[in-house]
């Protein structure tokens, strides 16, 4: 069975042979460790596929990962002071509520990058202004949501023309230990957006993968109702037992292993963490995937250990 076949068996609860595992290496991590990291990657084809030496430009940062300021197609100004890590929006084009009325989404196609829906709203309005909008619920809130959603639906149409088996989306919906907005307001304003986007994917035969940083436990049932097929939540922000209680067996989970601890954990703590994730979330029929993101502050020996332990426990279904 190929990696891809096994991956889809896992997310369809169709008895995969092993737990699909992956490691996401931040561009800044490549830039720091370079050939030494490449050696680790080459030792783990089960994780990194057919990566070949030289495939990565260690310093080739793109988009918001580049140092400095740039303005995106929506008019949001990004700043990056840590090349190879994600930048931050520092100037928002719609700081005045009334500007929402005349605002037009970009004419150009930008796809559905990370932060395509909820985050885009605060990239445009500014976080605090958007939160005040959610508190006061003026008509401009729904107008802005509709404009962003309309753009996203068009972009999704383009992506679906390629008939992908899986559409991968990312939008950070949670804070560290709670949702930013009341779950009922999320259901009122945002659930319909994701439901429409995900329904369009399903109509075209594509499955939906959604990444979200932060605490999202209270809206996982709503996301399931929206039709998400694979959810990529942070274990640290949600708690492994909570995720097991709310999502295990109901939806495929690509568990975002605890990257907030990887820089500080001993190798045995890393092993214990991966073991616990498998023990508490895996099912014979599938539904569990594991992903580890490594930032440049994770020691190289820990990155190697993460890869080794992922391989060790991937067969513990």
């Amino acid at each position: 069975m190929t990696r891809e076949e096994n991956y889809f068996k896992a997310i369809r609860f169709d008895y995969p042979e092993w737990i699909p595992i992956s490691v996401r290496i931040m561009p800044a991590t490549w830039a720091k460790y370079r050939e030494a990291l490449e050696e680790i990657v080459l030792q783990h084809p089960v994780i990194f596929g057919d990566y070949e030496k030289g495939n990565i430009d260690f310093d080739g940062f793109e988009g918001t990962y580049r140092e400095g300021e740039h303005t995106d197609a929506w008019g949001c100004v990004w700043k990056n002071v840590s090349p190879g890590l994600e930048g931050v929006v520092v100037k928002c084009p719609l700081t005045r509520r009334e500007d929402v009325h005349t605002f037009q989404p970009p004419n150009e196609h930008t796809g559905l990058p990370h932060g395509f829906m909820f985050m885009r709203l605060y990239y445009l309005r500014g976080f605090e202004e958007l939160m005040i909008d959610f508190a006061e619920e003026p008509p401009e809130l729904q107008i802005l949501i509709d404009k962003v959603l309309g753009y996203n639906l068009n972009e999704l149409d383009l992506l679906l023309e390629e008939n992908p088996a899986l559409i991968v989306l990312g939008d950070d919906l949670g804070n560290q230990d709670s949702l930013p907005i009341h779950p009922q307001k999320w259901i009122k304003y945002l659930k319909p957006c994701y439901a429409r986007l995900f329904a369009k994917c399903h109509q075209k035969g594509s499955l939906v993968y959604l990444h979200s940083d932060g605490h999202i436990l209270e809206i996982i049932p709503a996301l399931i109702e929206c039709g998400v097929d694979v959810l990529n939540p942070q274990v640290g922000a949600n708690g492994i037992d909570n995720l097991a209680r709310i999502a295990k067996g109901k939806i495929a989970i690509d568990l975002d292993l605890d990257r907030q601890h990887f820089p500080f954990w001993t190798l045995s703590q890393i092993e214990e963490h991966i073991h616990e994730a498998v023990e508490k979330l895996s099912l014979p029929q599938g539904g569990l995937l594991l992903i580890a993101e490594v930032a440049p502050d994770v020691p190289l020996k820990s990155i190697a250990a993460i890869c080794e332990y992922l391989e060790k426990y991937k067969s513990s279904i």
Partner: peptide, 8 residues
């Protein structure tokens, strides 16, 4: 309360 109510 969540952040919107707190900020308000």
């Amino acid at each position: 309360f969540f952040i919107p109510e707190m900020l308000l």
